Computed example of a mutant assay.
Amino acid sequence: MSTPPAVLPHRDAVKAALEAGGLTVGLGGAPPTAPPNGTTTEYVALYVAPGRSVPESLADARLDFDTVFQVTCVGKTEERCLWVADKARRALHGTLTVDGRRAWRPEELGGPPVQRDDDVSPPLYFVPVQYRLMSTPA
Results as ranks from 00 to 15, higher is better:
9 P>D: 09
22 G>P: 00
11 R>L: 11
69 F>M: 04
61 A>T: 11
15 K>S: 08
126 F>P: 02
12 D>F: 11
131 Y>C: 01
29 G>A: 02
60 D>A: 13
27 L>Q: 09
110 G>P: 02
41 T>W: 00
9 P>V: 09
4 P>T: 08
21 G>D: 03
72 T>P: 04
134 M>W: 05
82 L>Y: 01
29 G>M: 07
18 L>G: 01
54 V>A: 06
78 E>Y: 08
43 Y>N: 04
108 E>M: 13
133 L>E: 14
117 D>E: 05
90 R>P: 00
71 V>Y: 01
138 A>Q: 01
3 T>S: 13
110 G>C: 03
39 T>D: 15
101 R>P: 15
10 H>E: 07
3 T>I: 07
105 R>E: 12
6 A>M: 10
67 T>V: 08
7 V>N: 13
110 G>F: 05
5 P>L: 00
31 P>A: 06
102 R>P: 03
85 A>D: 10
105 R>H: 02
40 T>Q: 15
118 D>A: 14
10 H>G: 01
14 V>R: 04
128 P>C: 01
105 R>A: 13
62 R>F: 08
60 D>L: 14
113 P>M: 02
60 D>Y: 12
27 L>C: 04
10 H>N: 05
32 P>Y: 06
77 T>L: 08
107 E>G: 03
20 A>N: 10
132 R>H: 11
82 L>F: 03
138 A>N: 06
123 P>H: 12
23 L>V: 04
31 P>I: 10
86 D>R: 13
112 P>K: 11
38 G>T: 05
63 L>V: 14
117 D>M: 05
38 G>W: 07
138 A>W: 06
24 T>R: 10
26 G>L: 08
86 D>G: 15
122 P>F: 06
17 A>C: 05
36 P>K: 05
22 G>A: 02
33 T>M: 01
25 V>Y: 05
90 R>V: 15
102 R>C: 13
38 G>C: 07
64 D>G: 12
123 P>I: 12
66 D>Y: 04
49 A>K: 14
21 G>W: 05
58 L>H: 07
106 P>M: 04
46 L>T: 09
12 D>V: 01
43 Y>C: 03
85 A>T: 02
102 R>M: 12
23 L>E: 01
